[in-house]
Computed example of a mutant assay.
Amino acid sequence: MLVLREKLHRDQLVVSGKAIHCIVPDCEGYAFIFPNEQTTACIVCRASLCVKCKRGTHPTLTCVENQALSANDSLDDILFSRKWKRCPCCGIPVEKIEGCNYIACFSPICKGKKGLCYKCGKELDEEQHFSHYTNKGPYGDTCNTLDGLPG
């Protein structure tokens, strides 16, 4: 009964335009949509999703360009299966090994000057290091995006 209730709740959120279905195979999750946000994350598997095209995030490409690159799908499958994220600024895959969920991207493009939430994949600045993790802090298992909170 609980599973049916959760599915009904998810479907109501999707139909009302407040959420999108997760694109990861076998994931029953969904991701909240917030005004003026381009990315979001599945509350179950934490996959980072583009709100506009409802596919995996693609920071350096438009939705049309991303859809044209079918070879990118296999890389996205690997990223999703390992729960890695793409930097929202440069698109380079990043992996968190330990520590809090706010991480800096040290790619040759970002050079440690750009940060992101490892839970939802959103770009964060240094000032959001703590405010993006309202309920359980930056070491917790959730963030504002996954909790359905703005910012």
Results as ranks from 00 to 15, higher is better:
R55V: 05
E126V: 13
G137T: 10
E6G: 08
F34L: 10
G121R: 00
G112I: 06
A104E: 12
S107Q: 07
T145M: 12
I109T: 14
G148I: 02
K122W: 03
L13A: 12
V14L: 05
L124T: 01
A104R: 08
K7S: 10
A68D: 15
Y30N: 05
D141I: 11
D11W: 05
F32M: 09
S16I: 04
V24Y: 04
A71T: 11
P150W: 03
K7N: 08
S74T: 15
K114M: 10
H58G: 08
S107C: 15
A68F: 12
F34H: 12
L49K: 00
F106D: 09
G112P: 03
S74L: 12
Q128I: 02
Y30T: 04
K111Q: 15
T57I: 15
W84N: 04
V15K: 15
I43Y: 01
V51P: 02
K96M: 14
L13C: 11
E95K: 12
N135A: 15
G56F: 03
N72S: 10
L13T: 07
Q67G: 08
Y139P: 00
N101W: 01
H58N: 10
G56Q: 02
W84R: 03
G29S: 09
C120D: 03
K7H: 10
I23P: 00
F130Q: 09
N72L: 13
G151H: 06
F34T: 05
N144P: 09
Y133T: 02
D11C: 05
Y102F: 15
Y139H: 13
K83V: 10
C27M: 07
N66Y: 11
I20N: 00
G17I: 02
F106G: 05
G115P: 01
S48L: 01
D26C: 07
P25L: 03
H58L: 08
L146T: 06
W84G: 01
W84E: 06
H21T: 09
G115L: 01
Y102D: 01
T134V: 09
L75K: 08
T134Q: 07
Y102K: 12
E127K: 14
D11R: 13
Y102H: 13
K122F: 02
F80L: 10
C105D: 03
E95Q: 14
H132V: 07
Y139N: 14
F106N: 10
D77Q: 12
C27S: 07
G151L: 12
L149M: 09
R55T: 07
C45K: 04
S74Q: 15
K52S: 14
S74P: 00
Y133C: 02
V15S: 15
T62N: 11
L69Q: 14
Q128G: 05
A104N: 14
E28H: 12
C53N: 09
P138A: 08
A104S: 15
D11T: 12
C42N: 06
E127G: 03
I20C: 03
R55Y: 04
C90M: 10
P59L: 11
K96T: 11
T134W: 03
D77L: 11
L116N: 00
C105G: 06
R10I: 05
C53A: 13
G151W: 08
A68V: 05
P59R: 06
Y30A: 11
F34V: 05
Y133I: 04
C120R: 00
E127V: 11
V24N: 05
P35H: 07
S131A: 13
I23W: 04
S48K: 06
K136P: 00
E6F: 07
C42H: 03
Y118E: 00
T39E: 08
C120T: 07
C117S: 04
I43P: 00
